[in-house]
């Protein structure tokens, strides 16, 4: 039995009349890639927001490596080892890709200097390695603003990896990317995660991606988890096929 990294118990949250989480129980196991699927508005992103401290649940608790993290600040949770990549890449657009990475490295190290140059950080080669790992080293000296969307997504993930997280939460890593590029991005991504020993949870709409890259799948529906299992089990379930995948 693999070690439980993140554990959610009885998470509830509602926005007005909309129930975004109605008793979510989920364990994320060390070393796995867990996919979250479900129709729009099922509460998938809300779960990521709660797990990273952006939202405070009205009931329930989340622990990370046994430590209570419910309603902690995002930066506190980040420091504990949970990093996040966004559906719309969140980069410092006026900085170069390498400067983005070095800001992340300086954040991880803490007590940033106000005198020594950012570019003199000893983490520079390590950041170069990570950019190379996700295949965007070519763009290191380009302004983040100049990058196409697909590359920005990879830089967004590289930023998360720069924090040396134990767990990476990703919101639709391949959305907004041409379908021809999806496989390539997911290949790069999953091999990078494996190499860095990072467990991942990713929200995904494309069932091909889920089938190919997830170890387990959790199906969200109206704020509840409908089913958890291997991709084969979940995608074969007639109810899931009808309600979530729509076949």
């Amino acid at each position: 039995m693999a070690k439980v990294l993140l554990s959610a118990k009885g998470i509830k949250i509602r926005f007005g009349g909309v129930v975004a989480a109605d008793g979510i129980d989920l364990d994320v196991l060390q070393g796995e890639n867990l996919a979250i699927i479900g129709p729009n508005g099922a509460g998938k992103t809300t779960f990521l927001n709660i797990s990273t401290g952006y939202l405070r649940p009205q009931a329930g608790s989340i622990t990370f490596l046994g430590q209570e993290i419910t309603a902690q600040l995002p930066r506190t949770i980040t420091k504990l080892g949970i990093a996040r990549a966004f559906q719309i890449p969140q980069l410092f657009l006026d900085h170069t890709v390498m400067e983005n990475m070095l800001i992340a490295a300086a954040s991880r190290l803490g007590s940033p200097s106000g005198y020594t140059a950012l570019s003199a950080l000893p983490e520079l080669p390590e950041m170069e390695r990570l950019l190379d790992l996700v295949g965007v080293k070519l763009y290191a000296s380009r302004k983040a603003r100049e990058l196409p969307e697909g590359q920005r997504k990879l830089v967004d993930i590289a930023l998360a990896l720069a924090l040396k997280p134990r767990l990476l939460l990703m919101d639709e890593p391949t959305s907004g990317v041409a379908s021809a590029e999806k496989l390539e991005i997911m290949d790069i991504l999953t091999s990078a995660l494996a190499k860095e020993n990072v467990t991942s949870v990713f929200v995904e709409h494309d069932m091909d991606m889920v089938e190919r890259y997830a170890h387990r799948v959790a199906v969200w529906n109206v704020g509840k988890i409908q089913k958890v299992g291997t991709p084969a089990e979940v995608l074969a379930d007639p109810k899931v096929r009808e309600q979530v995948i729509g076949i």
């Binding site: 996040r84 410092f92 940033p112 106000g114 950012l118 924090l163």
Partner: peptide, 27 residues
């Protein structure tokens, strides 16, 4: 020197993306 240092770059990062800065673990 300050503007070229990590703290200076983080100051500029507040302008371009404060949310990301927080998600990197920096206040």
């Amino acid at each position: 020197r300050y503007l070229d240092s990590p703290l200076g770059h983080m100051l500029r990062a507040i302008k371009s993306n404060e949310t990301r800065l927080e998600y990197l673990g920096t206040s």
